[in-house]
Every structure is written in structure tokens, then in C-alpha cells.
């Protein structure tokens, strides 16, 4: 009796997860299917045989084809990689300081850092926009990079705090007794401990910046166009070439997300839930 009940529960569990998986995977399947669809029906739509084509992928990488995504891809790559690099350097230093240095207001400062990530983005974006207008940072790559640094830094620092605090205190202290300076202790002793953490947090930060729409649509206009802006400007939604471009944009992030899978939960809940 108990065995039968267990079997029913397991089958039901499979049905539920499979229905869920179909819903979550369908739009991605649709994107892939469209990107290899020739959109030329030789006979009637019902009898035509589907022959996949990769010509859309060729076209989006052909300069002058009208759907060339090269410049947007380059812009997005430069902006994402440079801002993530700066965030990683400043955020690692900051997170180390907040966990290992002992000073007044440290705890308050730590909460202040996190609160900046949770505050609505609009609240600092409007004055930043005005500032950018005055300083001519508006619609420049540098301006957008600076904005992403400010936006991503609290998030990065916060998650790195968790990793630095996991380093045993004794290791640090023995290094200090041996006469190493703080910066050397950070570089030679602590940093090697947190390299895996540094990698996943950087990837997570990169995904957020790569996918961002709000900062890009408000702080840039004509000169700087990132992939999310370029790919969503079509009124109708996504065409076949759009689907190919969308896949080119999403695939690296899907792979990155799968790599840091085990860590994703911890990252997205600001370290409050361990995955």
C-alpha cells in the first residue's frame, strides 16, 4: 500500500516537473527554431519540409547586411568586461576591508553597502542623468561604464563579504605576526582562498550588466547602443534574424549561469540562502 502511494507521488512529481520544464524551455526552443527557419515555404505550409538554414547567423555577422550586430556586440562586450573588471578590483579590496579590518562604524558601513543594491535604481538614476548632461558623459561608453560600476559594486562587495568571512582568522593573523603588510596579506594569503568565489561573483555581476536595459536606455541614446537595446527596438518583437541575434546574446549567459548553478541561489538572495 505504502509502495503504491510512493509510486503515485513520484509519477505525479515527474508530471509536474516535466510540464514546468516544457513551459520554461518553450520560448528558448522557439528562439532556436526561428533562428534556423528559412521562412520560405516552397509548397503549401503543410507539405513543405523544414530545411534548417544558418544563413541568418551569417547575415548578422556580415557588415552592411542591414541586420549586422557587430558594433552592438562589441559595445556590449567592452562595457561589460571593463566595468566588471573595475568592480572586481574595488569590490574585492572593499569586501576584504569590511571583513578583516577592525574599525569604528564597520557594521553600519557594511549595511550601507548592501542597502544601495536594494534601493530602487530610479532614485539615483535621475540625478545621475542630470549630472551626465552637465558633464557630457551622457551617451558615452565611459559614462555607461561608470554607471555600471556604481550599480554593480555594492552587489559584488556584498557577495564577496561572505567568501572573505569564511577564511579562518588564524591564517590571516599568523601572516600578520610574520610581518606581512595588509596589502601583501590580502594578495598572497586571502585572495587565493576566495578565487572560486571571485569567479562566480564576477560571472553573476557580468550577467546583470550584460542583460541590463534600464541604465542603457536612459543614459545612452545614439552613440552607444548595447545589445539589449538594439535587439528590442523592433516594434513587432523578434524576427528570424532577431532570434539568431537573441540567441547569440543569450547563449553565453545561459552557459555562464549553468556553470555557477550551485551558487546561483546564494547570489540571487544576497547570501541569505545557501544553495
Amino acid at each position: 500500500m505504502k509502495k503504491i502511494k510512493e509510486k503515485v507521488v513520484i509519477s505525479l512529481a515527474y508530471v509536474i516537473t516535466t510540464v514546468g520544464a516544457i513551459y520554461f524551455f518553450f520560448p528558448i526552443y522557439w528562439m532556436v527554431w526561428n533562428s534556423i527557419n528559412p521562412w520560405i515555404t516552397k509548397n503549401s505550409p503543410l507539405t513543405s519540409i523544414f530545411e534548417p538554414t544558418f544563413s541568418w547567423y551569417e547575415l548578422i555577422f556580415t557588415p552592411g547586411s542591414g541586420i549586422y550586430i557587430g558594433p552592438y556586440l562589441t559595445t556590449s562586450l567592452i562595457i561589460t568586461l571593463s566595468s566588471t573588471t573595475v568592480i572586481a578590483v574595488l569590490g574585492s579590496l572593499g569586501a576584504y576591508g569590511l571583513t578583516k579590518l577592525d574599525f569604528r562604524f564597520r557594521d553600519k558601513l557594511t549595511l550601507l553597502v548592501l542597502s544601495q543594491r536594494l534601493l530602487p535604481t530610479f532614485a539615483f538614476l535621475i540625478p545621475l542623468w542630470l549630472l551626465y548632461r552637465y558633464t557630457h558623459l551622457y551617451d558615452t561608453m565611459l559614462g555607461l561604464i561608470i554607471a555600471y560600476i556604481a550599480w554593480g559594486l555594492p552587489f559584488f562587495t556584498w557577495l564577496m563579504l561572505g567568501f572573505f568571512s569564511e577564511i579562518p582568522k588564524e591564517i590571516e593573523e599568523s601572516a600578520m605576526v610574520d610581518g606581512l603588510s595588509r596589502l601583501r596579506a590580502f594578495w598572497f594569503i586571502s585572495l587565493p582562498f576566495v578565487v572560486p568565489g571571485l569567479a562566480v561573483v564576477s560571472i553573476l555581476t557580468m550577467i546583470f550588466i550584460w542583460n541590463d536595459f534600464l541604465l542603457a536606455i536612459t543614459l545612452t541614446e545614439r552613440n552607444v547602443i548595447t545589445l539589449p537595446i538594439a535587439l528590442t527596438s523592433n516594434i513587432q518583437g523578434i524576427s528570424a534574424a532577431g532570434a539568431a541575434s537573441a540567441l547569440i546574446m543569450s547563449l553565453p549567459m545561459m552557459i555562464a549561469g549553468t556553470i555557477i548553478q550551485r551558487y546561483l541561489v546564494r547570489g540571487l538572495t544576497f547570501g541569505t540562502v545557501r544553495g
Partner: peptide
């Protein structure tokens, strides 16, 4: 399940 989380919200809307 985690794939949709990694796609840009704007792109998801366009899809």
C-alpha cells in the same frame, strides 16, 4: 529551470 533567469528581461519581453 535556471535558463530563463539568465536571459535579459528586455529580451524575454521581446520573445
Amino acid at each position: 529551470f535556471l535558463l530563463p533567469l539568465t536571459i535579459a528581461p528586455a529580451l524575454a519581453a521581446a520573445l
